[in-house]
Design a protein around this nucleic acid. Sequence first.
DNA 1: GAGCACTGC
Length: 629
Amino acid sequence: MSSLQFWKPGTVGPGSTLDRATEAEGSVISSAPIGAAVSIQAARERLPIFKHKEKLLYCVENYGVTILVGQTGCGKTTQLPQYLHEAGWAADGNVIACTQPRRVAATSVAARVATETLLDPLLSRYSVVMIDEAHERSVYTDLMLGVLKKIRRKRPSLRVIVSSATLDAAGFLDYFSSGNPPGEATIVSLEGRMYPVHIAHLEQPTPDYVAKAIDVVWNINLQRSSGLAELLPTLPRGATRLKLHALHSGLPMDEQLAAFEPAERGFRKVIVSTNIAEASVTIEGIKYVVDSGFVKIRTYNPTTSLSSLSTIPVSRASAIQRAGRAGRTSYGACYRLYPASTFESLPPTTQPEITRTDLTTPILQLKSLGIDDLMKFEWVSSPPAEAVLRALESLVASGMVGEDGRLTVIGEKVAECPVEVNIARMLFASKDYQCGEEILTIAAMTTVQDVFVIPDGAAGALAELERRKFTAEEGDHLTLLNAYNAFTRYGRSSSWCKAHALSFRALSRAVSIRAQLKKYMQRFGLPIENCQGDAKRLRQCIVSGYWRNGAKWMADGTYRSVRGNVVLHVHPNSVLFTRKPRSGWVIFHEMEETKKTQIRILTEIEPDWLLEYGHKFHDKRTGVGVSVR
DNA sequence: GAGCACTGC
């Protein structure tokens, strides 16, 4: 938690996909030659934060909570912990902690804090805890803030630093001030290392922001319009040529990194990106930003237990952050594909994740921190009451929480596992079905995404044929198992994966996650046995974790959920996309609402397997158990 | 007939 690591921007950091903005701040240090102590010191003193050093240390000394407002690049992540260290906050065995929304595995931090807290509920080893990038409002940022506010009531010597963007600072000040004596919290502003960004809006809204974006990009380069890739050959002689890059997390690493390379002479880079480029990564040298005004976001409906992925207008904070990407190395310009009046009507900030997510795991974590009375917990933003109830209900149904509202013995163990509750259940049940070896693989494979690579066009048909080689009659879980086993037996190389239409990155991740989960199983004394090819036992074991995700096949090819009788469509990547399961029943890993409600990763089951679990756990909300008709 | 982001040492 407290380690400080630096690595060069654009290179791969340990355990991460790409380096992010805050590490870029450290590049000033990491790129200095070893032993160049003088230039390191000079570089540190050039950072905008340096001028504020004394003021910052004064605030940390005199206020419980210091809210630090500063642009990415001002040096707060890398410098402040060092200032605190130099000022003696780490003396006498004290620890300065710094958490980040992505860099540190949130669940394992929670697990670690839980382990320490059970022995030391007031985190007395820690003198200062800094929550970085708090304005992103990830679930675990919000939980940590709540826990820290609670701890400060009992141990005022603990100092909290919340680093935030400008727009959110007042909200954090109110949160920590509320219910506390005056002088609890203060705001410190650091001037950023930003260049001016000229902002232009459309006069009228556009019906097609993709076409409009192409228009604007082409016009930035020269005065023309319509399709971008197709237009490239028509570029006049002498004009700056364009190099197109796509950027999103699903791309292979080398393609992601290509977007970070400086453009060749005579070329201009155009990066078409998801909001990965909004805050997660920083690409130096961006001069123009074209902002569609939209974001694709996941929301959760606790009433239906449905996650949905929808495209919605961005917040003003996001639009400002996007524009800022143009002003990191020189002055820039941002073209918003919407009128100025639309900008004014946007919501100020994005809804915090905790208000639109499944709370099952977060609430399990809170309980493992000893926070059992959720009514008293001071949320930074309260999640819907319905979401809290559904999460409690599902924790009770899966045996993690007893009727008294406290964690059960297995619940305490599962809270330490960095996987969702259903998977943890399945891992524990593998002891009864003697299939730990295979269940570990299935657990790892269902947590990675895009294992099969099916490209568009003619290559796609070939890839489909390759995938058929791994197809298991029983469904997707066993198909994933086959692919993993083939990978570890014959492949483990990217060329082998390419030849078999598999993602090397996804499978490599599965290998490391599996190793990880295996350690948890060994720690909990669970045997790792081979099922000896008995697919039935394996499928029953899957049902033990996922019995609430049963569905029945209908004559029109859709399914109906056992819970709620919802119409479900099979995801086209499933091996059961075009096939009826013999029994007419399946269990699925997840469902998601896009244009319609889809289920992913299906396996054929016998309906009475559902009853086996359904009769044990009664649905408290509807008053009926799982019924299989 | 489909692909926001993030994470697991």
